[in-house]
């Protein structure tokens, strides 16, 4: 199973995603340059964190017009697996593959810290190694991680269990006081209706090894691997 990691000039978690796949999962992985339109035969596309084109305007607002995102959109439409992390989440919302938008954090500051996440849908390509309502700990690191969705979008997301993760406390209680950035309904991660495009603000690729204070991120990557194994078996 080959992973492709999209590289914008301002991507800075590209390398982390690459290492997570290569060194921890031992899977083949390639970088894909933002000016390219060829996705190099990748089975899974990761849009990593960072500041794609500087993002002085709005996270991902320019990236969505890049050559590579055009190809990613086609890839996603044909059922390809796409994971957006942080800046990747912003780009996927900007490109319309996912509903809603990411705006400035509620406290108007960059936030880097560990958060707890409640797994609300463990029945997806990206979350099947987790159990329903399982609490995991991952770090956030963002300036614009405040997910906004209209009531209509929220109802739509709920209609197909599109909310994969919400911010919570250690025990899984969801409350606004555990919401680090002001996201609507404490939403930390969502998936599209077709189930092949997921995005989240927290960084699973950062917590893959216990030496770095956590390995809960592995479960997300392992879910993707498992799904592929199932595909082969089927």
């Amino acid at each position: 199973m080959t992973f492709g990691v999209i590289v914008f000039p301002g991507s800075n978690c590209d390398y982390d995603a690459y290492r997570a796949v290569k060194d921890v999962l031992n899977q083949p992985v390639k970088f894909i340059w933002h000016k390219d339109t060829d996705l190099a035969g990748a089975d899974v596309i990761i849009i990593p964190g960072g500041f794609s084109y500087g993002d002085y305007l709005r996270g991902g607002a320019i990236a969505r017009f890049s050559p590579v995102i055009g190809s990613v959109m086609k890839f996603a439409e044909s059922g390809g697996i796409v994971l957006g992390i942080c800046n990747g989440f912003q780009i996927l919302c900007e490109s319309g593959l996912l509903p809603g938008a990411l705006v400035r954090n509620r406290n108007l500051r960059f936030i880097c810290k560990d958060v707890y996440l409640l797994t609300e849908n463990s029945d997806t390509v990206f979350t099947q190694s987790l159990s329903h309502n399982e609490v995991i700990r991952l770090p956030v690191a963002h300036n614009d991680g405040n997910y906004y969705c209209s009531e209509k979008d929220y109802e739509y997301l709920k209609s197909y269990k599109g909310i994969t993760f919400r911010y919570c406390d250690k025990k899984g209680n969801v409350d606004d006081k555990y919401n680090p950035n002001g996201s609507s309904y404490s939403i930390a991660g969502i998936i599209n209706e077709k189930g092949n495009v997921m995005a989240m603000m927290p960084h699973p690729e950062r917590y893959m090894e216990s030496i770095l204070h956590g390995d809960d991120g592995r479960k997300i990557f392992e879910s993707i691997l498992e799904s592929q194994a199932e595909k082969v078996l089927n």
Partner: peptide
């Protein structure tokens, strides 16, 4: 907490 102290893992 206003600094990304983890990037590059």
């Amino acid at each position: 907490e206003q600094y990304d102290y983890q990037v590059r893992t």
